[in-house]
Amino acid sequence: MGQARALMGLSAQLDEELDFREGDVITIIGVPEPGWFEGELEGRRGIFPEGFVELLGPL
């Protein structure tokens, strides 16, 4: 779908969440519900709030 750069780090609180560090580039693979993305980073998949990232182009 597209890519996004992390504006800040996120520590996953639930198993389905993706954790990442500020500056990581995450591949967006879905939008499971409004306000959330599903992404992949370094072979890991999970969901995260859209406010933690900036899109690097259209989805």
Rank of each mutant, 00 (worst) to 15 (best):
L55S: 05
G46A: 00
L41G: 04
R44H: 07
F37S: 03
D24Q: 08
Q3P: 04
G39W: 04
E50G: 07
E40N: 05
G39T: 05
E50R: 11
V31T: 13
F37H: 00
P32W: 03
P34T: 13
G43N: 08
E50M: 09
Q13A: 12
F37V: 01
G57E: 15
A6E: 00
G9I: 00
E22M: 10
D15K: 09
I26C: 00
M1L: 12
I26W: 03
G51C: 15
E22K: 15
G23Q: 03
Q13F: 07
I47K: 14
G51Y: 13
L10H: 15
S11K: 11
V53N: 00
S11Q: 15
G43Q: 04
M8Q: 15
D24K: 00
I47W: 07
R5P: 00
L10M: 15
G46F: 05
L14D: 15
A4F: 03
L7N: 03
G39Y: 05
F52Y: 15
F48C: 01
L41Q: 02
P58G: 10
E42H: 11
T27E: 15
S11E: 13
G57Y: 11
I28F: 03
L56C: 10
G57N: 10
V53D: 02
L59R: 06
W36C: 08
T27K: 12
E38S: 09
E54C: 08
L55H: 07
G2K: 06
L18I: 07
E40A: 09
M8C: 14
F20K: 00
A6Y: 00
T27S: 12
G57S: 13
P32R: 12
E17Y: 14
P58H: 06
E17P: 00
G43T: 07
F37T: 02
E50Q: 13
E38N: 07
D15Q: 14
F20Y: 02
E54P: 01
I29Y: 10
I29T: 15
G57A: 13
P34E: 14
E54I: 06
A12Q: 09
G43V: 00
L10V: 10
G2Y: 06
I26H: 05
F37D: 03
G43D: 07
G2Q: 10
E22T: 12
P32L: 05
W36Q: 10
R44I: 04
P49N: 08
G57P: 10
E38Q: 09
A12G: 13
S11P: 09
R5E: 00
E22C: 10
V31A: 11
G23W: 01
D15I: 06
P32A: 00
R45I: 09
P58S: 08
G9A: 14
S11G: 08
E42Y: 10
L18H: 02
L7I: 14
E16S: 14
E50H: 03
P34M: 07
R44D: 02
A6Q: 01
D19T: 15
I29N: 03
F37R: 05
F37W: 04
R45W: 08
L59C: 07
G43E: 10
L56R: 08
E16L: 09
F20P: 02
I28M: 13
T27R: 10
E22L: 08
P32C: 02
L59H: 14
A6K: 04
D15F: 02
V25D: 04
L59D: 12
L41S: 05
E42F: 06
G57R: 11
M8W: 13
A6F: 08
T27I: 01
V25T: 09
F37N: 00
L56A: 06
E42L: 07
L14R: 15
L7D: 02
F20V: 02
V53L: 04
A12S: 15
I29P: 03
G35P: 00
L41H: 07
R5S: 03
D19L: 08
R45A: 05
R44M: 00
I28C: 02
R44C: 02
G35F: 05
G2R: 08
V31S: 12
A12N: 13
D24G: 03
R5G: 05
D15C: 08
D15G: 11
G2V: 14
V31M: 13
I29M: 12
L55W: 04
A4G: 14
E54N: 05
E38C: 11
M1P: 01
Q3K: 14
L55F: 07
M8Y: 13
E40C: 11
R21V: 14
G9M: 03
L55I: 10
E50W: 09
I29S: 01
P49Y: 02
V31P: 00
W36T: 10
I29G: 08
L14G: 15
R5W: 00
L55Q: 07
S11C: 10
R44E: 06
F48N: 04
E22Y: 06
E33T: 07
G43F: 02
R5A: 01
E42P: 01
V31F: 08
R5Y: 07
A4D: 01
L18A: 06
G51I: 14
A4E: 07
L41D: 00
V25L: 14
I47G: 00
